[in-house]
């Protein structure tokens, strides 16, 4: 098993040269074919250049996402290799034997050992091949210890990883930067080309942390801590959101992810540290009260109480909840008005 996996890893990613980070393994060609094959490309009626911007699945901008897309393309091509001939076979038989025109009508033919061996053989072989790649891919992007990230980091030892702790609330995202002692709500900023290591938990219900172009979904669970990691390979703004239904405000639960140069990132940290708001546990409890962030509001904290992440996990384990008042979703307009009134009263 070990050797098999090591062999698998060795070929999963070609390490990028210089400061450019790998866009992923040599699967770009396959991906392009896939994009053209897909009827939706035609449906949207866009030129490929613009479809790239909208087909997030096929347009990765990070190491993990690129590896995922590579294997997606591989999987689909192997499957199409089987499915297309099968579909053609069925259509061919239907046309040929319609009304018995194909001749050779045989009212009793219902068995052939050779054919049966083939019809069992083909799916078994296909599933065997796909299983091999699936296992390889699982280890490559395992959220606990993603091989592609370890390898990319090993290739660039001078870039210490950035830690980010993620806490989902009803219905916002709180990002803590323990090394920088700052925090943000509904905005994630990461330096390009640097491994980012996440620890994630929820103050309330289960969410999925998801940035389509950078990293796949991971369940963010209350009272538990999971890990995830990413490396952004291109600067840019990427959409992130919760993918798992979490209650009434879930549709508004998105955060913009900005991947910026490392110098820009340092400057941004300085600027946030220069602010005045402090995220203590008491303040966190206020942030975590059920809030539908309809207006995409972002906040920054210049200082974070040490151990906040851990504190949230233990409190939830001890039974802390942030109940949803039923009324807040029954009449949304009234709810938003009352919130606006509250805000202006303060």
């Amino acid at each position: 098993m070990r050797g098999f996996l090591r062999w698998g890893r060795a070929r999963a990613v070609d390490s990028g040269a210089g400061g450019r980070w790998p866009r992923g393994p040599a699967g770009i060609g396959a991906r392009r074919i896939l994009r053209w094959l897909w009827p939706g490309t035609l449906l949207t009626g866009c030129a490929p250049a613009t479809t790239r911007a909208t087909f997030w699945m096929l347009d990765p901008k990070g190491v993990i996402a690129a590896t995922q897309t590579h294997y997606l393309a591989l999987d689909v091509l192997v499957m199409l290799f089987i499915i297309v001939p099968t579909g053609a076979l069925i259509i061919g038989i239907m046309r040929r034997y319609r009304g018995g025109r194909g001749g050779a009508y045989d009212a009793h033919w219902d068995h052939s050992n050779a054919i049966e061996a083939v019809v069992w053989g083909i799916p078994i072989i296909t599933v065997g091949i796909l299983s091999y790649y699936s296992v390889k891919a699982i280890y490559a992007v395992d959220p606990n210890r993603p091989a592609v990230i370890s390898r990319a980091a090993a290739a660039h030892p001078g870039r210490p990883p950035l830690d980010v702790d993620v806490i989902s609330t009803d219905w916002q995202w709180v990002f803590l930067y323990p090394q920088q002692h700052i925090a943000t709500v509904d905005r994630l900023v990461v330096p390009v080309g640097t491994p980012v290591r996440f620890r994630l938990t929820s103050a309330t219900v289960v969410n999925d942390f998801y940035i389509p172009q950078l990293v796949g979904m991971i369940d963010v669970m209350p009272g538990m801590r999971v890990r995830q990691a990413l490396i952004a390979s291109r600067p840019g703004t990427y959409e992130g959101f919760s993918a798992n239904y979490a209650g009434a405000g879930f549709s508004w639960m998105d955060f913009e992810t900005r991947a910026v140069g490392r110098g820009v990132f340092r400057a941004w940290v300085k600027k946030v540290q220069g602010g005045s708001r402090r995220l203590t546990y008491a303040q966190f409890e206020r942030v975590a009260r059920p809030t539908i962030d309809v207006s995409a509001h972002v906040s920054y904290y210049a200082w974070v109480e040490p151990g906040l992440f851990r504190h949230v996990v233990t409190e939830v384990r001890d039974g802390k909840t942030y109940p949803t008042p039923m009324a807040m979703t029954e009449n949304m307009t009234a709810y938003l008005q009352s919130r606006a009134a509250q805000a202006s009263a303060h």
Binding site: Y97, R98, Y105, W109, V119, I122, P123
Partner: peptide, 28 residues
């Protein structure tokens, strides 16, 4: 992941068997 893909084996067999049921038939 592997067990789930394994479901594809008997499912695939069924598709082929339906195709070969029509093979040499008199389709209406």
């Amino acid at each position: 992941s592997i067990t789930t893909m394994a479901v594809g084996i008997p499912t695939g067999v069924k598709v082929f068997n339906w195709a070969f049921t029509m093979f040499r038939g008199r389709l209406r």
